Simulated scan of single mutants.
Amino acid sequence: MDTAPRPTPADLTFRDATVADVDVLVALVESAYRGDSSRTGWTTEADILEGQRTDPQEVADVIAAPRTRLMTVEYDGAVVACCQLQGRDDHAYFGMFAVSPALQGAGLGKTIIAEAERVARAEWGSRAMHMTVLNAREDLIAWYVRRGYRRTGEMTPFPYGNERFGLPQRDDLAFELLVKDLD
């Protein structure tokens, strides 16, 4: 049984990412979703997609994008999670969410998404949060539904042939839009 101390919300530090964080954030996102390291957590996509989840250029682009924040979460001096927020009209887009596989299941995800929702309301007056999730990730979709997100049934095709998004291991992938009202 793991007896390592688990962070509480008070133990976390939230800050905006800088270009100095790019390599650490790429490694974090990759570890949470791809390859063998991702299998220690529950957010792995290793059986659905191989190859990369992100790269340094994409992370740097997110950091530099207007009306966008790449929130970086630290615990005990180490980056343990991140998420992208982008203000869009009356809603915010939530993406690039990753929690270190070693800390998944400790409640960090709930804390981070609640902070992201608070920031979206406070910073941009967002009335809703939008995100897209791979349709094959029923467990992840169910987790978001328990947090108040609703399935819209609106699908965007997976970009087959574009290796920047990974190498699909199946031919039925799409992204489903999930929405939560923040009012």
Rank of each mutant, 00 (worst) to 15 (best):
P101V: 09
M155A: 14
R170T: 14
A4H: 14
T72N: 03
A120I: 11
A92Q: 03
V62Y: 01
T18E: 00
S37C: 07
T13C: 01
A116T: 05
S38G: 09
F14P: 00
K110C: 06
D21P: 01
T18D: 02
L173R: 04
P7N: 10
P56K: 07
A98N: 04
Q84L: 10
F158I: 05
A98G: 08
V80I: 14
D11W: 05
V26H: 02
R164I: 00
M1G: 14
A81S: 07
F165T: 02
H91M: 13
S38D: 07
I113A: 07
R164V: 00
G107P: 04
N162I: 09
R151Y: 09
F175A: 06
R69G: 00
A17M: 01
D171R: 14
D36K: 12
R67K: 13
F175P: 01
L167Y: 04
E50L: 15
V145T: 14
T13L: 09
I113E: 05
W124T: 05
T8F: 00
P9F: 05
L134Q: 07
K110I: 10
V119L: 10
E74C: 06
S126R: 01
M131I: 15
R69M: 01
M96K: 01
T54V: 11
A46G: 09
A32E: 03
D89G: 00
T8R: 15
G153D: 13
R164M: 06
A136F: 09
G107M: 09
Q86D: 10
L140W: 14
K110M: 12
R170Q: 14
F94P: 02
V19A: 13
R127W: 02
R15T: 02
V145Y: 00
F175C: 07
A116K: 05
G95M: 11
G95C: 12
V119F: 03
T54G: 04
P9M: 12
R6Y: 06
A128F: 06
E30K: 04
P168G: 11
V59G: 04
R53D: 06
V62N: 04
S38I: 06
D76E: 15
A128C: 13
D181L: 12
E117G: 01
R39T: 13
